[in-house]
Design a protein around this nucleic acid. Structure first.
Length: 110
DNA sequence: CGATTGACCGCTA
DNA sequence: TTAGCGGCCAATC
Protein backbone atom coordinates (compact mmCIF):
# COMPACT_ATOMS: atom_id res chain seq x y z
CA UNK A 1 0.00 0.00 0.00
CA UNK A 2 1.27 3.39 -0.98
CA UNK A 3 0.81 6.05 1.62
CA UNK A 4 1.46 9.75 1.53
CA UNK A 5 3.15 11.67 4.29
CA UNK A 6 -0.18 13.27 5.09
CA UNK A 7 -1.85 9.93 5.68
CA UNK A 8 1.05 8.61 7.68
CA UNK A 9 1.18 11.80 9.70
CA UNK A 10 -2.42 11.48 10.77
CA UNK A 11 -1.87 7.93 11.95
CA UNK A 12 1.39 8.70 13.70
CA UNK A 13 -0.09 11.59 15.65
CA UNK A 14 -3.08 9.49 16.62
CA UNK A 15 -0.92 6.67 17.89
CA UNK A 16 1.52 8.87 19.74
CA UNK A 17 -1.25 10.68 21.55
CA UNK A 18 -2.31 7.32 23.01
CA UNK A 19 0.96 6.84 24.84
CA UNK A 20 0.27 7.57 28.50
CA UNK A 21 2.35 9.79 30.70
CA UNK A 22 5.38 8.06 32.12
CA UNK A 23 5.51 5.56 29.27
CA UNK A 24 7.30 5.51 25.92
CA UNK A 25 7.08 3.86 22.54
CA UNK A 26 9.67 3.54 19.76
CA UNK A 27 9.94 4.88 16.23
CA UNK A 28 9.98 1.31 15.05
CA UNK A 29 6.79 0.46 16.95
CA UNK A 30 5.02 3.34 15.23
CA UNK A 31 6.25 2.24 11.82
CA UNK A 32 4.96 -1.26 12.50
CA UNK A 33 1.59 0.13 13.54
CA UNK A 34 1.43 1.91 10.19
CA UNK A 35 1.87 -1.42 8.46
CA UNK A 36 5.31 -0.30 7.24
CA UNK A 37 7.77 -1.84 9.69
CA UNK A 38 10.75 -0.41 7.85
CA UNK A 39 9.55 3.18 7.60
CA UNK A 40 10.96 4.13 11.00
CA UNK A 41 13.08 6.87 9.50
CA UNK A 42 10.01 8.50 8.07
CA UNK A 43 8.36 8.49 11.47
CA UNK A 44 11.18 10.66 12.78
CA UNK A 45 10.80 12.99 9.86
CA UNK A 46 7.08 13.30 10.52
CA UNK A 47 7.51 14.03 14.22
CA UNK A 48 10.16 16.57 13.36
CA UNK A 49 7.52 18.70 11.66
CA UNK A 50 5.96 18.78 15.08
CA UNK A 51 2.21 18.87 14.78
CA UNK A 52 0.62 20.11 17.99
CA UNK A 53 3.06 19.64 20.86
CA UNK A 54 0.33 20.02 23.45
CA UNK A 55 -1.81 17.20 22.11
CA UNK A 56 0.93 15.02 20.69
CA UNK A 57 3.61 14.04 23.21
CA UNK A 58 6.41 13.49 20.69
CA UNK A 59 8.94 13.33 23.50
CA UNK A 60 7.59 9.90 24.47
CA UNK A 61 8.94 8.40 21.27
CA UNK A 62 12.39 6.88 21.74
CA UNK A 63 14.83 4.58 19.99
CA UNK A 64 14.41 0.84 20.01
CA UNK A 65 17.84 0.33 21.58
CA UNK A 66 16.60 2.05 24.73
CA UNK A 67 18.29 5.39 24.16
CA UNK A 68 16.37 8.64 24.22
CA UNK A 69 16.92 9.65 20.61
CA UNK A 70 16.45 13.01 18.97
CA UNK A 71 14.05 15.82 19.57
CA UNK A 72 13.08 18.96 17.75
CA UNK A 73 13.92 21.22 20.69
CA UNK A 74 17.08 19.36 21.56
CA UNK A 75 18.10 16.35 23.59
CA UNK A 76 18.13 18.24 26.89
CA UNK A 77 14.52 19.32 26.55
CA UNK A 78 13.43 15.79 25.74
CA UNK A 79 15.34 14.35 28.66
CA UNK A 80 13.81 16.83 31.11
CA UNK A 81 10.31 16.16 29.85
CA UNK A 82 10.74 12.42 30.26
CA UNK A 83 12.30 12.71 33.69
CA UNK A 84 9.47 15.02 34.68
CA UNK A 85 7.13 12.10 34.00
CA UNK A 86 9.12 9.78 36.21
CA UNK A 87 11.22 8.15 33.52
CA UNK A 88 14.85 7.81 34.57
CA UNK A 89 17.75 8.20 32.20
CA UNK A 90 21.37 7.32 32.80
CA UNK A 91 24.50 9.20 31.78
CA UNK A 92 24.68 7.53 28.39
CA UNK A 93 21.16 8.55 27.43
CA UNK A 94 19.84 5.10 28.23
CA UNK A 95 16.35 4.75 29.65
CA UNK A 96 16.40 2.89 32.96
CA UNK A 97 14.01 -0.08 33.02
CA UNK A 98 13.23 0.52 29.38
CA UNK A 99 11.18 -2.65 29.05
CA UNK A 100 8.88 -1.78 31.91
CA UNK A 101 8.15 1.83 30.87
CA UNK A 102 7.64 0.81 27.29
CA UNK A 103 4.08 1.11 26.07
CA UNK A 104 3.10 -1.57 23.57
CA UNK A 105 1.11 -0.15 20.69
CA UNK A 106 0.13 -3.59 19.49
CA UNK A 107 -2.18 -3.79 22.49
CA UNK A 108 -4.33 -1.14 20.88
CA UNK A 109 -6.78 -1.76 18.08
CA UNK A 110 -7.90 0.95 15.67
C1' DC B 1 15.52 11.61 -13.87
C1' DG B 2 19.34 10.07 -9.98
C1' DA B 3 21.13 11.51 -5.41
C1' DT B 4 20.48 12.91 -0.86
C1' DT B 5 18.14 13.26 3.46
C1' DG B 6 16.03 12.36 8.24
C1' DA B 7 14.27 12.85 15.94
C1' DC B 8 16.34 5.19 12.92
C1' DC B 9 17.31 -0.18 13.02
C1' DG B 10 19.81 -4.47 13.34
C1' DC B 11 23.32 -7.14 11.95
C1' DT B 12 28.45 -7.71 11.55
C1' DA B 13 33.27 -7.62 13.17
C1' DT C 1 30.95 -4.48 24.40
C1' DT C 2 30.96 -0.86 21.28
C1' DA C 3 31.48 1.09 16.25
C1' DG C 4 30.49 0.95 11.62
C1' DC C 5 27.67 0.20 7.67
C1' DG C 6 23.99 -0.81 4.57
C1' DG C 7 19.25 -0.47 4.20
C1' DC C 8 14.45 1.19 4.20
C1' DC C 9 10.54 5.04 2.72
C1' DA C 10 8.69 9.24 0.78
C1' DA C 11 10.03 13.86 -0.02
C1' DT C 12 13.16 17.13 -1.83
C1' DC C 13 17.13 18.79 -4.47
Amino acid sequence: MNMSMDEMSIMVYRLVSMVPEGRVCTYSDLARALGKPKAYRLVGKILNRNPNPVVVPCHRVVRSDGRVGGYMHGYEAKRRLLEGEGIRIDGKGMIVDFDSVRFRLDKINR
